[in-house]
C-alpha cells in the first residue's frame, strides 16, 4: 500500500517533468523559462536538504492541523447528528463558518495573529475541516436501523453506542476521508505559507517564484509529493489495520 502510493507519485511526477522538457524542446524555450535536466539536478543536489527541513516544518503543521480538524469535525458531527434545535444550530453554525473561502479571510488571520505557527495551523485546520465535517455529519446523521433497532427499543442505545455503531458501519468511508484530508491539510498549510508566513515550504516556493527559479519550485514539489505520498500510505495502512483489528476481517 505504502510502496504503491510512492511509485504512483514517481510516475505522475516524472510524467509532469517529461511534459515540461517536451514543451521546452518543442518550443525551444531557454533554461530561464524551463530549466534543463542538468540544471534541475544541480538545484536538487544543492537545495534538497534545506527543502527537506522546510517540508518537514510544513508537514508538522499540516499533521497537527489535520488532527485538530478531525477532532473538531467529529465533535460537531456527533453533537449535530440529532434533528434537534441544538443539532441544527450546530450544523448551521459549522456550515456558516465556511461561507467565506478560508483563503479570502487568511489576510485577516495574518493581521490579527501574525505570520507565525498559529496562523498556519489555523488555516490548515480550517481548509481540511469542512470536507471532513460533511462526511462526519453525513455518517453520524444516518441511522443504521437494522442494528440500532434492538438497542433503541430495549432502551440500551446511549449516544456513545450510537456513534460507535455508525462509525463502525462507515469505517471504510471515514478512513478514506481522513486519509484524503491529509492532502487538504498539506495544501492548506502551503497556501498559508505562500500568502504570508515566514517559514515552511510554501514560503520557500514564494521566494523561488520571486526569483523566477522554476527548478527550485520543481524540487520543492518533489519534496512535498514524496512526503505526502508517504504520509497517505501510512494513514491507509493504519486504516486497514484498524479495520482488521476492529472488524476481525
Amino acid at each position: 500500500m505504502l510502496h504503491r502510493r510512492i511509485y504512483q507519485f514517481f510516475i505522475v511526477y516524472f510524467l509532469g517533468i517529461g511534459l515540461l522538457f517536451g514543451i521546452k524542446l518543442v518550443l525551444g524555450l531557454s533554461d530561464y523559462v524551463i530549466p534543463g535536466p542538468s540544471n534541475l539536478w544541480n538545484t536538487a543536489t544543492a537545495e534538497w536538504y534545506r527543502y527537506l527541513g522546510d517540508v518537514l516544518n510544513t508537514f508538522t503543521v499540516a499533521v497537527v492541523g489535520q488532527v485538530l480538524s478531525i477532532i473538531i469535525a467529529l465533535t460537531v458531527g456527533v453533537v449535530g447528528r440529532k434533528a434537534t434545535w441544538f443539532g441544527s444550530f450546530i450544523k448551521v453554525a459549522a456550515y456558516n463558518v465556511q461561507a467565506y473561502p478560508i483563503v479570502a479571510i487568511a489576510p485577516i488571520l495574518f493581521i490579527l495573529l501574525g505570520d507565525g505557527y498559529l496562523t498556519r495551523l489555523f488555516i490548515a485546520a480550517m481548509i481540511c475541516y469542512f470536507p471532513l465535517l460533511l462526511s462526519v455529519i453525513g455518517i453520524m446523521g444516518e441511522p443504521v436501523a437494522d442494528i440500532e433497532h434492538f438497542y433503541r427499543i430495549t432502551g440500551r442505545l446511549r449516544w456513545q453506542l450510537e456513534v460507535k455503531i455508525r462509525a463502525f458501519e462507515n469505517l471504510y468511508k471515514l478512513t478514506t476521508v481522513i486519509s484524503g484530508s491529509a492532502t487538504l491539510a498539506m495544501a492548506g498549510t502551503i497556501v498559508a505559507e505562500f500568502i504570508a508566513a515566514n517559514a515552511g515550504i510554501g514560503y520557500s516556493i514564494r521566494i523561488a517564484l520571486y526569483q523566477s527559479d522554476l527548478s527550485k519550485i520543481l524540487v520543492a514539489l518533489f519534496m512535498i509529493g514524496i512526503t505526502l505520498s508517504f504520509y497517505q500510505g501510512v494513514l491507509e495502512m493504519l486504516g486497514t489495520s484498524l479495520k482488521k483489528s476492529w472488524a476481525g476481517k
Binding site: 442494528i147 433497532h149 434492538f150 427499543i153 440500551r156
Partner: peptide, 25 residues
C-alpha cells in the same frame, strides 16, 4: 414490559463475537 418488534433483517454489530453480544444483551 414493552411490546417488542423484531424483524428478519436485523444485524448485530460486527466489532465482537456473537457470544459476546448475546452476553452483553
Amino acid at each position: 414490559g414493552p411490546c417488542l418488534y423484531t424483524y428478519n433483517q436485523e444485524r448485530l454489530p460486527g466489532w465482537s463475537s456473537v457470544g459476546r453480544h448475546v452476553e452483553q444483551s
